[in-house]
Nucleic acid binder design. Structure first.
Lengths: 353, 353
DNA sequence: CGGCGCTGGTCTAACGTTGCACCGACCATA
DNA sequence: TATGGTCGGTGCAACGTTAGACCAGCGCCG
């Protein structure tokens, strides 16, 4: 009873009165090479003994595994939770599994995780941390690790085989910023944690671009980015960060009337901070987020935000990864840049007075 | 370059001029059995070749794996996202990995996932789907699968070895309901998806208990549970469900003034539904949720809710599971029932007039 | 000086699966 | 009656690692 030991293919073979090879043949799509009667006997034996092939043995033998890795900053952020969910669906539909890792945007932790994935025999990973450099993964990439970077556009010194899938963050931030500008706002702020990742840098650039096109300069705007480059903020803390930022920003002289937040969690925190000060979102201060998590629509007021179509992006990312795992020859680098969409809800309005 | 093949212990051994056994000895804490000089040579070789032990082979040989499974309804719900995060931390600290699976509360999918985990060699799983019956997992449990059920108190016909960890959902719901009662509400509603899981049944029971203690009967209250037992609502849809429920409930004759929602996502949906009708949360209708996700505090108004201390619960769950994996002898069933805490914020107030 | 125990290693047999190479029996054809 | 071909199945080596059995050399003691 306490036999944690599994049933082996050998035991099944004995029970069915055949050799292990024959059982293996049945299990690996070579059923046509045996009498229907034999086949039934084996199936019955498998069933009766509750046999499950030992994956470690199988993988050791074949070198293959049907698992891919997913590295996200933190599933504590609902955007990544939803992304993970969608990726899992896409993978499951093709018979793959997903191993989820939270990197907290820490390169060392990320490297360690991917090392582990590698020794698990996993040869394909979807990477969502958007770290500027992939150098810490170079040894594994050189050995044949297939990487799909999500939410991080290609960089000049990236490995040649890298696939990048992302929304166009620069355009997204421009959309958000233009929206505020068109509503008449002139004093804007950009709120983010440390600008340590590529996507964040691009969102910031889009913000600045839009300002300049409107004849303003970045100096006219305030940038609040986590109080210093040294501080690292996880995604869960994003909300708290937004809250602090709002309180700090709005008590300055000449406070901003419109705020672009780095993501929805942060934006929701900003909204909270605004209310902490007894001001009203939209009426007094406009806020626009990024991601369009489920809760953006649920908030009061519902959040204006730049949508990332997470289900579609997850599906593309998986399809791309699968292609390269199954045919490493096709491992040319490429980028897919999806145009984001601004979803206007009620957290934005013309500036007061 | 394209050699997806990993470096083997054999290659390391050759490079270091020793036998594979010696390398293995070093790797498995038997370093004291060799000269410091030998050790250094091996370490250098490992480093130079970028050797990572092949986990499949190791597992095949030892029968051990440092991975546990986590089955949650859906990481799309931030509560489960946060729980997964906390569990991962707890596991990582002890050198374990977590394999995350979203069951969507589907017993068949759950069984299939756990089957897969079993053939991965995983012998310990934390189960969060709270399904009433564990019969679909019986074959594996009989074979030695160690199970910790989270958010699901023990049932009479559960496997004897099952460990249950949960908050006291009945008490939690009583806390929530009493709070509304004490504020003076008399017409209450309970909003949930299908009451298909144990925890939901208990929350419902706590709701009814509290009503009866106050001299009301369940008939005085409205129960909105997903529009029928046949419908299954995933956790992501919880918010949409709450929204629909609120709109439907509040346009009836004699509408409720206080609503207890099955969880925070649902409660946030209810709040949204209330606003859809042009009413105000708290002032017109009070709402209390369950879980205390990060966003509960960020909402406007901040949500009154019953807190589940997710980090502590995750830590206990992992500790318990680890104990049984490492010493299956101690596999006596037991339950841990944590008293929940009501967090009063601003979504509740005395009824209008 | 024979035997003991220690040190620093190596040898070897698994772990469970897979898939190629092989094989005997039977049938059809030349 | 050879020849060859299919059918239905088996034998075996290998995948990379581990841990207990084993061993050679050395110093020391009685």
């Amino acid at each position: 009873m306490q036999s944690t030991a599994g049933v082996t293919i050998q035991q099944v073979a004995e029970a069915a009165g055949v050799s292990a090879s024959t059982v293996s043949n049945l299990l690996n799509g070579r059923a046509h090479r045996m009498q229907p009667e034999t086949r039934r006997r084996i199936e019955k034996a498998i069933d009766r003994l509750g046999y499950r092939p030992n994956r470690a043995a199988r993988q050791l033998r074949t070198g293959r595994t049907q698992t891919v890795g997913l590295v996200v900053p933190s599933v504590g952020n609902p955007f990544w939770g939803a992304f993970a969910l969608h990726l899992e669906s896409a993978a499951l539909a093709e018979g793959y599994h997903v191993l989820l890792c939270n990197s907290e945007r820490d390169p060392e932790r990320e490297r360690q995780y991917i090392d582990e994935l590698w020794s698990d025999g996993i040869r394909g990973v979807i990477l969502c941390s958007s770290l500027p450099s992939l150098e810490h993964l170079r040894p594994l990439i050189d050995r044949g690790l297939q990487l799909v970077a999500f939410d991080r556009i290609a960089q000049a010194d990236d490995p040649e085989t890298l696939v990048s899938i992302s929304i166009d963050n620069t355009v997204g931030a421009q959309l958000a910023t233009n929206h505020l500008l068109e509503l008449g706002h002139r004093r804007l702020a950009f709120v983010s944690g440390a600008l340590g990742s590529i996507n964040r840098k691009h969102r910031y650039r889009g913000f600045v671009d839009a300002l300049e096109r409107a004849g303003l300069t970045a100096d006219d705007a305030t940038v609040w980015s986590g109080g210093g480059a040294t501080e690292q903020f996880g995604d869960v803390a994003a909300a708290e960060l937004g809250r602090t930022a709002a309180r700090e920003l709005l008590t300055r002289d000449d406070p901003p009337t419109g705020i672009v937040a780095i993501n929805d969690m942060c934006a929701l925190g900003v909204c909270r901070g605004i209310r902490d000060l007894g001001r009203r979102v939209a009426n007094d201060v406009s806020v626009v987020g990024f991601d369009d998590i489920v809760l953006a629509d649920l908030a009061d007021p519902p959040l204006t935000t730049v949508r990332q179509p997470s289900a579609e992006l997850a599906a593309s990312a998986f399809a791309e990864l699968k292609r390269r795992i199954e045919d490493p020859g096709s491992a040319k680098g490429r980028s897919l840049l999806v145009r984001p969409e601004l979803v206007v809800r009620e957290s934005t309005a013309p500036p007061p007075r």
